[in-house]
């Protein structure tokens, strides 16, 4: 595998990472460094997670990734792996920050995931190839995870877990911290629930997760930009007169009814308009 490095003084070293305290001097990486050009969203949590935690991490990651944003995590067992998988499922490349040397897959059980991310994603580490992991190294790399992100979502964790360290570091770096509420009779929930009581924003349900994380607006912008000229024309006409019918749109835009219907179908599929019995409204 092709291991490359990027130094703190290099142009492609991400700006938002450079500004954190104790920013790593050198980053080893495998994959596409461009993925960390812009701030991402991190999902972290305990290694010994519950099935609920795994479901939440995968689901939230899937929704974030569906907006076209990569998810960062630590490729540990449990929550981290679920987050990477959710992101891959949505077809978006994911970013893993390792607590070992760049060429070492830890835990071994994640070898398949490691290869997958190396192929279509990005693996990062501040440790040179061959460096074995040590207990102190994992909390250390957490500052990179939060440093690469604009928001950190903590899914599950006890009061003394590494995810709590990540959350603290994120706050120190000025990142937003979100937490998934947990069942109060499980030790794995204590950390996240404490974060919420300390002021972290809770993710209240799966469907609005992306919205809570402030992604829908960004997502909408990106989708509008990718539209064809005719699609933009029809969308504009719908926004101007919500509740219009295809016949009127055809009349106003000068496009044939059949084609207007196809364009509306495309817009609806991209969640930009909503139809209700031949009336079309812009989707918020």
């Amino acid at each position: 595998m092709d291991i490359k490095t990027v130094d703190i003084d290099d142009d492609n070293y991400p700006e938002h990472l450079r500004s954190i305290p104790k920013a790593p001097e050198t980053l080893y990486y495998i994959g596409d460094i461009k993925l960390i050009e812009h701030p991402l969203i991190a999902i972290v949590g305990t290694r010994r997670c519950s099935s609920y935690g795994r479901w939440a991490a995968e689901g939230i990651a899937y929704r974030i990734a569906s907006c076209g944003i990569s998810v960062v995590s630590g490729m540990a067992e449990g929550i981290d792996s679920a987050a990477h998988r959710g992101c891959i499922k949505a077809g978006t490349p994911t970013v893993a920050v390792l607590g070992t040397g760049i060429d070492i897959c830890f835990p071994k059980s994640n070898l398949e995931l490691y290869r997958r991310i190396a192929e279509d994603g990005l693996i990062l580490s501040e440790y040179p190839p061959g460096q074995m992991g040590a207990p102190w190294m994992f909390p250390e790399r957490n500052r990179i995870i939060s440093g690469l992100s604009k928001s950190v979502v903590v899914v599950e964790g006890t009061l003394k877990s590494g995810s709590m360290i990540t959350a603290r570091l994120a706050l120190e770096q000025g990142r937003d911290v979100y937490a998934v509420p947990g069942n109060i009779n499980q030790p794995g929930s204590a950390g996240v629930n404490r974060l919420i009581s300390d002021g972290a924003c809770p993710i209240l349900d799966m469907d609005s997760a992306a919205q809570t994380l402030g992604l829908s607006a960004a997502k909408r912008m990106r989708r509008v930009e990718s539209l064809s000229a005719e699609e933009k024309l029809v969308l504009g006409a719908v926004i101007e007169d919500p509740g219009t019918d295809p016949g009127t749109l055809a009349f106003r835009t000068g496009i044939a009814v059949g084609d207007v219907l196809a364009l509306l179908g495309a817009l609806e599929l991209k969640d930009l308009v909503r139809s209700s019995g031949q009336r079309f409204y812009p989707e918020k």
Binding site: P246, G258, D259, L261, A262, L263, L264, G265, A266, E268, L269, S275, S276, G277, Q278
Partner: peptide, 28 residues
């Protein structure tokens, strides 16, 4: 059928997109 009306031997993206509109509102 939409493709046939279009004189197209293949079913293209546009034809499926049009068909999306021929459905009743969910609430019905």
């Amino acid at each position: 059928t939409a493709a046939d009306l279009d004189g197209s031997a293949e079913i293209k993206e546009r034809h499926i997109l049009e068909i999306i509109n021929y459905r009743l509102p969910d609430e019905l």
